[in-house]
Design a protein around this nucleic acid. Structure first.
Length: 262
DNA sequence: ATGGTCGGTGTCCGA
Protein backbone atom coordinates (compact mmCIF):
# COMPACT_ATOMS: atom_id res chain seq x y z
CA UNK A 1 0.00 0.00 0.00
CA UNK A 2 1.39 3.37 -1.02
CA UNK A 3 0.44 6.17 1.38
CA UNK A 4 1.15 9.87 0.84
CA UNK A 5 0.81 12.75 3.28
CA UNK A 6 0.67 16.26 1.87
CA UNK A 7 -0.19 19.68 3.27
CA UNK A 8 -1.88 20.88 0.09
CA UNK A 9 -2.66 24.45 1.31
CA UNK A 10 -6.10 24.67 -0.34
CA UNK A 11 -7.46 21.57 -2.05
CA UNK A 12 -9.61 23.57 -4.46
CA UNK A 13 -6.80 25.75 -5.70
CA UNK A 14 -4.48 22.78 -6.20
CA UNK A 15 -6.78 20.23 -7.82
CA UNK A 16 -4.53 20.03 -10.91
CA UNK A 17 -1.54 19.27 -8.71
CA UNK A 18 -3.45 16.65 -6.73
CA UNK A 19 -4.28 14.94 -10.01
CA UNK A 20 -0.68 15.19 -11.20
CA UNK A 21 0.55 13.69 -7.91
CA UNK A 22 -1.98 10.85 -8.10
CA UNK A 23 -1.16 10.04 -11.73
CA UNK A 24 2.61 10.22 -11.33
CA UNK A 25 2.97 8.34 -8.05
CA UNK A 26 -0.10 6.04 -8.09
CA UNK A 27 -0.78 6.07 -4.34
CA UNK A 28 -3.50 3.96 -2.72
CA UNK A 29 -4.13 6.63 -0.11
CA UNK A 30 -3.49 10.38 0.07
CA UNK A 31 -3.82 12.21 3.38
CA UNK A 32 -4.27 15.96 2.98
CA UNK A 33 -3.93 18.83 5.43
CA UNK A 34 -5.00 22.46 5.10
CA UNK A 35 -7.75 21.65 2.63
CA UNK A 36 -9.31 24.99 3.67
CA UNK A 37 -12.82 24.05 2.65
CA UNK A 38 -16.04 23.25 4.49
CA UNK A 39 -17.27 19.67 3.85
CA UNK A 40 -20.27 20.79 1.75
CA UNK A 41 -17.92 22.45 -0.76
CA UNK A 42 -15.26 19.71 -0.91
CA UNK A 43 -14.51 18.97 -4.60
CA UNK A 44 -15.72 15.34 -4.50
CA UNK A 45 -16.70 15.40 -8.17
CA UNK A 46 -13.18 16.16 -9.37
CA UNK A 47 -11.64 13.47 -7.15
CA UNK A 48 -14.02 10.51 -7.24
CA UNK A 49 -12.54 8.95 -10.40
CA UNK A 50 -9.11 8.85 -8.73
CA UNK A 51 -10.20 8.14 -5.17
CA UNK A 52 -13.69 6.69 -4.83
CA UNK A 53 -13.49 6.45 -1.02
CA UNK A 54 -13.02 9.56 1.07
CA UNK A 55 -13.19 10.65 4.69
CA UNK A 56 -13.11 14.42 5.19
CA UNK A 57 -13.17 16.88 8.08
CA UNK A 58 -13.08 20.47 6.93
CA UNK A 59 -14.02 23.94 8.13
CA UNK A 60 -14.32 27.23 6.32
CA UNK A 61 -11.07 28.97 5.29
CA UNK A 62 -8.67 27.30 7.74
CA UNK A 63 -7.19 23.89 8.55
CA UNK A 64 -9.17 20.91 7.22
CA UNK A 65 -8.01 17.32 6.66
CA UNK A 66 -9.00 14.53 4.29
CA UNK A 67 -8.15 10.91 3.54
CA UNK A 68 -8.60 9.88 -0.10
CA UNK A 69 -8.46 6.17 -0.92
CA UNK A 70 -8.56 3.87 -3.93
CA UNK A 71 -9.51 0.98 -1.67
CA UNK A 72 -12.72 0.85 0.35
CA UNK A 73 -12.33 1.22 4.09
CA UNK A 74 -14.50 -0.37 6.75
CA UNK A 75 -15.04 2.68 8.90
CA UNK A 76 -13.82 6.18 9.39
CA UNK A 77 -14.32 9.26 11.51
CA UNK A 78 -12.88 12.34 13.07
CA UNK A 79 -12.15 13.61 16.52
CA UNK A 80 -12.18 17.03 18.09
CA UNK A 81 -9.14 18.14 20.08
CA UNK A 82 -8.89 20.87 22.71
CA UNK A 83 -12.70 21.16 22.57
CA UNK A 84 -12.61 22.67 19.11
CA UNK A 85 -14.28 21.37 15.95
CA UNK A 86 -11.51 22.82 13.81
CA UNK A 87 -10.69 20.10 11.27
CA UNK A 88 -7.39 18.78 12.53
CA UNK A 89 -7.92 15.00 12.59
CA UNK A 90 -9.48 12.30 10.47
CA UNK A 91 -9.02 8.52 10.43
CA UNK A 92 -10.00 5.38 8.54
CA UNK A 93 -9.85 1.66 9.31
CA UNK A 94 -9.45 -0.97 6.59
CA UNK A 95 -10.59 -4.59 6.66
CA UNK A 96 -7.78 -6.52 8.33
CA UNK A 97 -7.30 -3.82 10.92
CA UNK A 98 -4.95 -1.28 9.34
CA UNK A 99 -5.73 2.21 10.63
CA UNK A 100 -4.58 5.52 9.21
CA UNK A 101 -4.74 8.69 11.32
CA UNK A 102 -4.20 12.04 9.67
CA UNK A 103 -3.39 15.07 11.85
CA UNK A 104 -2.86 18.77 11.35
CA UNK A 105 -1.21 20.00 14.55
CA UNK A 106 -1.58 23.74 15.26
CA UNK A 107 1.32 25.77 13.88
CA UNK A 108 1.68 27.72 17.11
CA UNK A 109 2.14 31.32 16.04
CA UNK A 110 5.38 33.26 16.31
CA UNK A 111 6.24 33.63 20.00
CA UNK A 112 7.40 30.39 21.67
CA UNK A 113 5.91 31.25 25.05
CA UNK A 114 2.54 29.75 26.07
CA UNK A 115 1.95 32.50 28.65
CA UNK A 116 2.28 35.21 26.04
CA UNK A 117 0.99 33.45 22.92
CA UNK A 118 -2.34 31.55 23.03
CA UNK A 119 -1.56 29.82 19.72
CA UNK A 120 1.57 28.29 21.17
CA UNK A 121 -0.38 27.28 24.30
CA UNK A 122 -2.95 25.61 22.01
CA UNK A 123 -0.19 23.74 20.17
CA UNK A 124 1.28 22.36 23.41
CA UNK A 125 -2.17 21.48 24.76
CA UNK A 126 -3.01 19.71 21.49
CA UNK A 127 0.16 17.61 21.71
CA UNK A 128 -0.50 16.79 25.38
CA UNK A 129 -4.04 15.72 24.56
CA UNK A 130 -2.79 13.51 21.71
CA UNK A 131 -0.27 11.96 24.09
CA UNK A 132 -2.93 11.27 26.68
CA UNK A 133 -5.33 9.80 24.10
CA UNK A 134 -2.76 7.50 22.50
CA UNK A 135 -1.54 6.39 25.91
CA UNK A 136 -5.06 5.13 26.59
CA UNK A 137 -5.44 3.53 23.16
CA UNK A 138 -2.04 1.96 22.44
CA UNK A 139 -2.18 -1.77 21.76
CA UNK A 140 1.01 -3.73 21.23
CA UNK A 141 -0.10 -5.47 18.02
CA UNK A 142 -2.00 -2.58 16.45
CA UNK A 143 -1.34 -1.87 12.79
CA UNK A 144 -1.50 1.89 12.71
CA UNK A 145 -0.10 4.69 10.61
CA UNK A 146 -0.02 8.26 11.96
CA UNK A 147 0.68 10.90 9.35
CA UNK A 148 0.38 14.59 8.97
CA UNK A 149 1.70 18.07 9.27
CA UNK A 150 2.82 17.91 12.90
CA UNK A 151 4.36 21.37 12.60
CA UNK A 152 7.48 20.26 14.51
CA UNK A 153 10.90 19.50 13.06
CA UNK A 154 12.37 17.44 15.90
CA UNK A 155 15.91 16.56 14.86
CA UNK A 156 19.02 18.72 14.47
CA UNK A 157 19.05 17.76 10.82
CA UNK A 158 15.33 18.24 10.31
CA UNK A 159 16.06 21.98 10.03
CA UNK A 160 18.54 23.98 7.98
CA UNK A 161 20.17 25.42 11.12
CA UNK A 162 19.62 23.81 14.50
CA UNK A 163 21.29 26.73 16.28
CA UNK A 164 19.38 29.46 14.48
CA UNK A 165 16.03 27.77 14.94
CA UNK A 166 16.24 26.88 18.63
CA UNK A 167 13.97 29.84 19.45
CA UNK A 168 11.79 29.51 16.38
CA UNK A 169 8.38 27.87 16.77
CA UNK A 170 8.56 24.37 15.18
CA UNK A 171 12.01 23.54 16.58
CA UNK A 172 12.02 24.77 20.19
CA UNK A 173 13.10 22.24 22.86
CA UNK A 174 9.69 22.42 24.57
CA UNK A 175 7.90 21.31 21.38
CA UNK A 176 10.46 18.66 20.54
CA UNK A 177 10.09 17.25 24.04
CA UNK A 178 6.29 17.12 23.59
CA UNK A 179 6.67 15.31 20.27
CA UNK A 180 9.09 12.81 21.87
CA UNK A 181 6.53 12.07 24.56
CA UNK A 182 3.85 11.56 21.90
CA UNK A 183 6.10 9.26 19.92
CA UNK A 184 6.77 7.08 22.98
CA UNK A 185 3.04 6.41 23.58
CA UNK A 186 2.87 3.76 20.91
CA UNK A 187 6.58 3.27 20.23
CA UNK A 188 5.82 5.02 16.95
CA UNK A 189 8.52 4.43 14.34
CA UNK A 190 9.53 7.49 12.31
CA UNK A 191 9.59 6.11 8.75
CA UNK A 192 11.84 8.89 7.50
CA UNK A 193 14.72 8.15 9.82
CA UNK A 194 14.41 4.43 9.24
CA UNK A 195 15.46 5.08 5.65
CA UNK A 196 17.55 8.25 5.92
CA UNK A 197 20.43 8.51 8.46
CA UNK A 198 19.87 10.92 11.38
CA UNK A 199 22.75 13.18 10.31
CA UNK A 200 21.43 13.70 6.81
CA UNK A 201 19.40 16.87 6.20
CA UNK A 202 15.77 16.15 5.42
CA UNK A 203 13.02 18.73 4.80
CA UNK A 204 9.39 18.64 3.69
CA UNK A 205 8.61 22.38 3.83
CA UNK A 206 10.25 25.46 2.37
CA UNK A 207 8.86 28.96 3.04
CA UNK A 208 7.11 30.90 0.30
CA UNK A 209 9.18 33.89 1.32
CA UNK A 210 12.51 32.75 -0.04
CA UNK A 211 13.48 34.18 -3.41
CA UNK A 212 14.77 30.78 -4.48
CA UNK A 213 13.76 27.94 -2.15
CA UNK A 214 16.27 25.50 -3.66
CA UNK A 215 19.22 27.91 -3.57
CA UNK A 216 18.65 29.08 0.01
CA UNK A 217 17.39 25.62 1.06
CA UNK A 218 16.18 26.83 4.44
CA UNK A 219 13.80 23.94 4.92
CA UNK A 220 12.23 22.10 7.82
CA UNK A 221 10.83 18.56 8.17
CA UNK A 222 7.33 19.29 9.48
CA UNK A 223 5.47 16.44 7.75
CA UNK A 224 5.74 13.00 9.25
CA UNK A 225 4.81 9.36 8.73
CA UNK A 226 4.92 7.18 11.81
CA UNK A 227 4.00 3.50 12.04
CA UNK A 228 3.46 1.15 14.96
CA UNK A 229 6.15 -1.51 15.62
CA UNK A 230 3.92 -4.19 14.03
CA UNK A 231 4.33 -2.41 10.69
CA UNK A 232 8.01 -1.49 10.89
CA UNK A 233 9.27 -4.59 9.08
CA UNK A 234 6.67 -4.03 6.38
CA UNK A 235 7.98 -0.59 5.38
CA UNK A 236 9.45 -0.93 1.90
CA UNK A 237 10.10 2.58 0.69
CA UNK A 238 10.25 6.17 1.87
CA UNK A 239 10.48 9.29 -0.26
CA UNK A 240 10.07 13.04 0.02
CA UNK A 241 8.92 14.41 -3.32
CA UNK A 242 10.96 17.63 -3.19
CA UNK A 243 10.46 18.26 -6.91
CA UNK A 244 6.82 19.12 -6.11
CA UNK A 245 8.04 22.39 -4.57
CA UNK A 246 8.79 23.50 -8.15
CA UNK A 247 5.37 22.68 -9.56
CA UNK A 248 3.25 25.54 -10.90
CA UNK A 249 1.48 27.20 -7.96
CA UNK A 250 3.13 24.81 -5.51
CA UNK A 251 2.18 24.28 -1.90
CA UNK A 252 4.91 25.27 0.55
CA UNK A 253 4.88 21.62 1.72
CA UNK A 254 5.80 18.66 -0.49
CA UNK A 255 4.33 15.14 -0.46
CA UNK A 256 5.90 12.48 1.75
CA UNK A 257 5.49 8.89 0.55
CA UNK A 258 5.77 5.41 2.08
CA UNK A 259 5.14 1.93 0.74
CA UNK A 260 3.92 -0.61 3.27
CA UNK A 261 3.54 -4.31 2.43
CA UNK A 262 -0.01 -4.84 3.66
C1' DA B 1 18.30 42.93 12.09
C1' DT B 2 14.67 42.80 8.74
C1' DG B 3 11.38 41.29 5.73
C1' DG B 4 10.32 38.50 2.49
C1' DT B 5 4.92 35.33 0.13
C1' DC B 6 1.00 32.75 -0.01
C1' DG B 7 -4.52 31.48 0.55
C1' DG B 8 -9.08 32.65 1.85
C1' DT B 9 -16.88 33.54 0.88
C1' DG B 10 -10.26 37.88 2.77
C1' DT B 11 -9.48 44.47 2.59
C1' DC B 12 -6.96 40.94 8.01
C1' DC B 13 -5.68 36.63 9.83
C1' DG B 14 -3.10 32.48 9.81
C1' DA B 15 0.82 30.18 7.98
Amino acid sequence: MRIITWNINSVRLRMPLLRKLAEETMPDVICLQETKVVDELFPHGEIEDLFPYRQINGIKAYNGVAILSKRPFQSGGAQNWCDRADGRHVFVRFAGGLEIHNFYVPAGGDVPDPAENPKFAHKLEFLDEMTEWWTGHARPDAKRVLVGDLNIAPGKHDVWSHKQLLDVVSHTPVEVERLDRLQKTHDWVDAARLFVPEDEKLYSWWSYRARDWRASNRGRRLDHIWVTPALQAKLEKFEILAEARDWQRASDHVPVIVDIAV
